[in-house]
Simulated assay, not measured.
Amino acid sequence: MKVKENIGKYIKLEISGKKFISGLLVDIGTDTWVVFNGKDHLYIPIVHIQNWILLKQDKISEISINDEPTPINNHNEEISLRKILTLSKGIFTEIYVTSKQALHGFIISIMNNYFVFYSPIYKTMFISLNHLKWLIPYRYNQRPYGLSNTSLPVNQSNITFARSFEVQIQKLKGELIVFNNGENENLIGKMQGLKNNYVELIGANEEPIYINMQHIKTVHMT
């Protein structure tokens, strides 16, 4: 079966982290699927799609479909995650990375294996591309937390970022940082360095903590 033959059908996907999404399969690109859930278009990296099924008619009726907004991508062009990230740059966006909560803000820069994200709550964040589960561009008139554009005075044009996630983390040496939105206390501390694929932090009790780079999803300074 060719997967693209199911475009226009209703599906249910399981995403990494035991998250489930149901909706209309709108498009399939080189590394990304687009699903309309009745309200928003979700751009989902294929690498995080654990499994999917076609929905039966009784399950389709449970999905409330409002007027479908215009997708951010052009249907005449094959989509990719990097292309979607580029199109979303500067647009208010919801992204899902960790297993506990979504992040709201906008993309500032896209690097080799991570992107820079501005959140009104966490400020400048570095997000691993490998751990991005999905992305939802806001509708035109939406703002995170009801804020106005003037409440988000972000000018990052003069700031340079490293090309790789690893080097960007190394640049934070000596800073008090938070990994993965602080899911537990061992992900918060003073950055000491990166060696043999492990980041060394000094925790609140002054003991060293070693974190595998492969499991770092988000980074922000306190």
Rank of each mutant, 00 (worst) to 15 (best):
K2G: 07
K2W: 12
V3S: 11
K4P: 04
I7D: 04
Y10L: 09
Y10I: 08
I11G: 02
I11K: 01
K12Y: 05
K12P: 02
K12E: 15
I15Y: 10
G17I: 11
K18M: 05
I21P: 04
S22D: 08
G23W: 11
I28Y: 00
G29H: 06
T30C: 04
V35I: 15
F36E: 05
G38Y: 10
D40C: 10
H41E: 04
H41S: 01
L42E: 05
I44Y: 07
V47T: 12
I49Q: 03
Q50Y: 12
Q50I: 12
Q50K: 14
W52Q: 04
L55Q: 11
S61R: 15
I63V: 14
I63P: 01
N66T: 14
N66H: 14
E68I: 15
T70M: 14
P71Q: 02
P71I: 10
P71H: 09
N73D: 14
N73K: 03
N74E: 13
N74L: 04
N74F: 10
E78N: 14
E78K: 15
E78M: 11
S80K: 08
L81R: 03
L81F: 07
R82Y: 06
K83P: 03
L87K: 15
L87N: 07
S88I: 09
K89R: 15
K89D: 02
G90Y: 08
G90R: 05
F92W: 10
I95K: 07
V97F: 05
T98Y: 06
T98D: 13
T98L: 03
Q101H: 10
Q101D: 09
A102L: 03
L103K: 06
H104D: 09
F106D: 02
I107S: 10
N113R: 01
N113H: 03
Y114T: 03
F115N: 07
F115K: 08
V116W: 01
S119I: 02
S119Y: 03
P120V: 10
P120W: 06
I127K: 06
S128M: 12
S128C: 02
S128R: 09
L132K: 07
L132P: 04
L135I: 15
Y138L: 12
R139E: 15
R139H: 15
R143L: 09
Y145V: 05
Y145Q: 07
G146A: 08
L147F: 11
L147A: 12
N149Q: 09
S151L: 12
N155W: 06
Q156V: 04
Q156K: 11
N158T: 05
N158W: 01
I159R: 12
I159H: 01
T160Y: 07
R163S: 11
R163V: 11
F165Y: 09
F165A: 05
E166V: 13
I169L: 12
Q170L: 02
K173W: 01
K173Y: 06
G174M: 06
V178E: 14
V178N: 08
V178P: 00
N181E: 14
N186S: 12
L187A: 10
G189N: 02
K190Q: 00
M191H: 09
M191E: 08
Q192T: 01
G193A: 06
G193I: 04
E200I: 00
E200L: 00
G203P: 06
G203W: 08
E206R: 08
P208H: 07
P208W: 05
I209R: 10
I209N: 05
N212Q: 00
Q214V: 02
H215N: 15
K217S: 13
K217W: 01
T218K: 11
M221F: 09
